[in-house]
């Protein structure tokens, strides 16, 4: 029973991170049709910003808001300068552009910060591990879950209870008709990149506090996790993204604790195998709309 609860707790913590990641991707996918391969690398740049801000002596309470602002700025800049130039709902072109952007971001990060891993600021209070009845959970995991819950709730309210959210959803479904209701697609794309920026900033802080160090090449792993969660959940569905994130989180936690030791290295591969099987059974993902009308 304890073992099961432990897996549940670990899965909850992992799942919150992955849900946020998938949500960040799906916001932009909905409005622009972009699956952003450079998402992880943008998060890495944000993490480097936090490292730099700490190294010039700023305390954490100042680093956090500045990092979030930086993340939003980066996300909106990239959206404006790189992706919106592609301009239309052309998922493949956008994906290729994001592929190129990923290369550029990694290469520039190698130039600026070097290949070596940099220590990420992490307050010791967050690294304490709570022990209750044989269950172990770190403060950071709790913070992770709490922050994710707050962001999910805020996004839910924004998307379902505000005109801005309605406009975003309407644009995601049918931008041309939304324009007739005085909704500017341009503004919606900006809004989605801003939301993604906030999410990216939060992830940058939480993820690297857990990992401890940043390298220019840390982004790929983040992108892959986000992609798996996104595809499990189904592209373009916010609800699906959250479900996909938690599904991946619980699956990983279960695999990590129950998989024979000599198969642990295959964790990510097994996660993808699950995705593949799921997609054969249900190509649209858990909560997504069907992309391919033919099947």
């Amino acid at each position: 029973m304890t073992g099961f609860l432990q897996v549940f707790l670990d899965g909850l913590s992992l799942g919150s991170s992955y849900s946020l990641l998938a949500l960040g991707l799906t916001m932009v996918f909905g409005v622009l049709g972009l699956v952003n391969f450079a998402f992880g690398d943008m998060i890495v740049w944000t993490a480097f910003l936090a490292v730099e801000l700490t190294s010039i002596g700023l305390p954490l309470p100042a680093v956090i808001p500045l990092t979030l602002v930086g993340s939003v700025a980066l996300s909106m800049f990239v959206g404006e300068v790189v992706f919106r130039r592609v301009g239309t709902q052309n998922p493949l072109s956008l994906l290729l552009v994001s592929f190129g952007l990923s290369l550029v971001l990694v290469a520039l990060a190698v130039q600026v910060f070097g290949e070596l891993a940099l220590m990420f600021p992490s307050p010791t209070a967050l690294n304490t591990v709570l022990q209750v009845d044989g269950l172990q959970i770190s403060m950071l995991s709790l913070v992770n879950v709490a922050v994710a819950a707050v962001i999910l709730a805020a996004l839910f309210v924004l998307l379902n209870r505000s005109r801005l959210g309605l406009a975003l959803r309407a644009t995601a479904e049918n931008a041309r008709t939304a324009r007739l209701m005085a909704v500017r697609p341009k503004s919606m794309v900006r809004l989605s990149f801003a939301i993604t920026g906030v999410i990216g900033g939060v992830i940058a802080l939480l993820w690297f506090m857990k990992v401890g160090t940043v390298t220019p090449r840390s982004g790929l792993d983040i992108t892959l996790k986000a992609f798996i969660a996104l595809v499990i959940g189904g592209l373009g569905s916010a609800r699906g993204a959250v479900a996909g994130g938690f599904a991946l989180g619980f699956a990983e936690a279960a695999l990590a604790s129950w998989l024979p030791v000599d198969l642990r290295g295959l964790q990510q591969a097994l996660a993808f195998v699950v995705v593949v099987i799921l997609l054969v059974l249900r190509p649209q993902g858990i909560g997504g709309r069907l992309l391919d009308v033919s099947r």
Partner: peptide
């Protein structure tokens, strides 16, 4: 079974 970005 997939097309577009999901397939990629």
């Amino acid at each position: 079974r997939l097309t577009g970005p999901a397939a990629a």
